[in-house]
Design a binder for these strands. Structure first.
Lengths: 356, 356
DNA sequence: CGGCATATACTCACTTTGAGCAATAACCTC
DNA sequence: GAGGTTATTGCTCAAAGTGAGTATATGCCG
């Protein structure tokens, strides 16, 4: 837990409502007619060479298939814990057995803008981030690996700044913020105006790009009606872009938001916890490790410094073997030194992006 | 999420259970006889001079009052969002209007060790961290401010290493880990043995103290049966300490665990996000700011370097006024520069503890 | 007015970063 | 099989950041 944690707060809610019942005794009261259902959602990320991938299942919605994260309801009778329930659903739907998994966030405001159909149970969804090493030999019984950046084309800077940002996103967001009638923030409690958020999210106006703000960027696009999910939920802002293309591939329900949370968290955590190694084989070269980190961060790193950081930080140890056919001089193979976890408080790949 | 975010993962669950129903279609099935209830819990932290405090309500349990966090069930009909529900409950129970609030974690395994009373709804609790400036003029209509370190006496190192660690905690944990029959970790999926966890948590064996591992320490004590809550849940390990005192004041249900999560997250976040200012008045001296940070971190900081960090980091700006009667030379008053949020990706009080 | 206590300014050695240069060693191609 | 390609590996260097100490300023109190 050293630096960065939550890192990914959801937008604040607005004014509290009037509340009839008072005191903790209400805790024992059964919930009303609209029952609560807890959905467990897994953003399972892997990395094949330098392609970060997300495991999706196809979900038919109005006769049109839509990508979804593996998910299912939490059933206390069957699932001993939340995470056990998640693992069960993932195994059933995809045949994959999860390794590392961590809880991300509990989203309760899904359907905030949907029609108030009180017959359906109110859904609260808990998002998880899971990491799996890419293994072509393990056959999936369901689901497909999809490139993460197909859902967030503006997040991959490895071939330079994505053109979509300056060509499409910034112009449309600029138009959107000009439409704002007042200077006040959209969300009560948030100290930021639309203009400030544009600067922070997309690094306009000299502000630098922060690769960890994946969720903030997605939510900004959502509020501006620039992603398909916003139109689906009937956001007003979506109407003005009628006919123009939306940004990135859409997903079922709020799953793309969960994926954004997952990517943001992973990008943050990779710098202070040795989580990359969950994506690597037991033995790897330093270049393979670097390529994986770069794939997650979406930017390039300075090779020699990366090497120094990882080696002097005690994160890896040489196995004694080498890998040939790398295209050049053979590379020493390394393995993760799990002892670092005991030695240092925040052992991660503390890296800073460069622009080459 | 720059550094540290989740920071506070709950222990992994064990083996998944067999699952009858397959596929996301089950999502539409209503949950079974034991309904799910979502509890919203607020760890509201403030800081009075150099005393970090937590707002508690008294909860009668078996004719004995027990400290509890303000809490209540999430009722979708009444509460538009999870956070709105939380704010309503807190206002109703204590009269306090929350400022900053962020979600911490969703705990689903409460009652894992309790008797399997399937008539009660299964409770899932969502913990929140809230920060409020200390204001003696605002009267509470319920609840009391309690010193945070009464619940975690081992976490306050400002007067040196707490004696309870070497005198009580480490000896008993050492005895507990000797009782372990195998070398394997207690929890499947966790790579740490009991001995490793003792080292990591309490800095024995030359490992250094990590002030952010508040939750990990509490959970270790819980598993070893050294906190009252463990005995209450009927943990086996608790039996062996019969008659010996338990560590720290107990709380209702899993509320102390939520408080541990809150303190750990706050300690992490204070270093990379300007959250301290949520605890300060509009104007403050740098020494007051330092005292507050120290109170949260539970350790002392180097005064001159703290000053340099905070000023050169652009976190504050002088108001032009001074505060006299500080006991010495008058101190310049400062205010928070909220513009930093736009300028730098991770503006926090990046501090390192010293030992003076 | 002198001593005290705190605030504030400045110095300095040491470590950590960001970035580049150079040499090495296999493989590939002609 | 010689030379080019590509990636690994070792090294240097300046700039910035960090930990810790010293000196001066300024109000309060007796």
């Amino acid at each position: 837990m050293s630096r960065h944690d939550d890192v990914c707060a959801a937008p604040n809610s607005n004014t509290p409502q009037r509340e009839g019942m008072v005191g903790p005794d209400a805790m024992t009261e059964r919930s009303g007619p609209a029952a609560i259902e807890i959905g467990l959602n897994a953003a399972i990320i892997t990395c094949a060479k330098d392609n970060p991938q997300i495991l999706t299942v196809r979900q038919p919605v109005d006769d049109r298939p839509l990508e979804a994260l593996p998910f299912g309801p939490f059933t206390p009778i069957r699932h001993r814990t939340l995470e056990a329930g998640l693992r069960t659903w993932v195994a059933d739907q995809t045949g994959l057995h999860l390794g590392y998994a961590e809880q991300l966030y509990t989203f309760g405001d899904r359907g905030r803008h949907a029609r108030a159909d009180d017959n359906e149970p109110h859904a609260v969804s808990i998002g998880y981030l899971a990491l799996n090493r890419f293994d072509e030999s393990t056959a999936l019984t369901g689901g497909h690996w999809q490139g993460v950046y197909a859902f967030f084309p503006w997040e991959d800077w490895r071939s330079g700044k994505p053109e979509i940002i300056d060509d499409e996103i910034v112009p449309r967001l600029t138009r959107w913020l000009a439409d704002q009638t007042s200077d006040r923030p959209d969300v009560a409690g948030s100290p930021f105006s639309r203009a400030d958020r544009l600067r922070m999210c997309f690094g306009t106006d000299g502000t630098q790009w922060d690769e960890e703000k994946v969720l903030e960027r997605y939510e900004l696009l959502f509020e501006a009606g620039l992603v398909e999910e916003a139109a689906r939920e009937g956001r007003d802002a979506a109407a003005q872009w009628d006919g123009l293309p939306q940004f990135g591939r859409a997903m079922h329900l709020d799953h793309r938001r969960i994926l954004a949370t997952a990517l943001g968290r992973l990008r943050a955590k990779i710098k202070y916890r040795p989580v990359v190694f969950e994506l690597m084989d037991a033995d790897f070269t330093l270049f393979e490790l670097q390529k994986t980190v770069e794939a997650i961060l979406g930017s390039h790193l300075h090779k020699q410094n990366f090497r120094r950081l990882v080696e002097s930080g005690g994160l890896v140890e040489a196995t004694g073997n080498v890998r040939t056919h790398t295209g050049g001089r053979p590379a020493k193979l390394f393995r993760f030194r799990s002892e670092v976890l005991l030695e240092r408080p925040a052992p991660g790949v503390r890296v800073h992006a460069t622009l080459n």
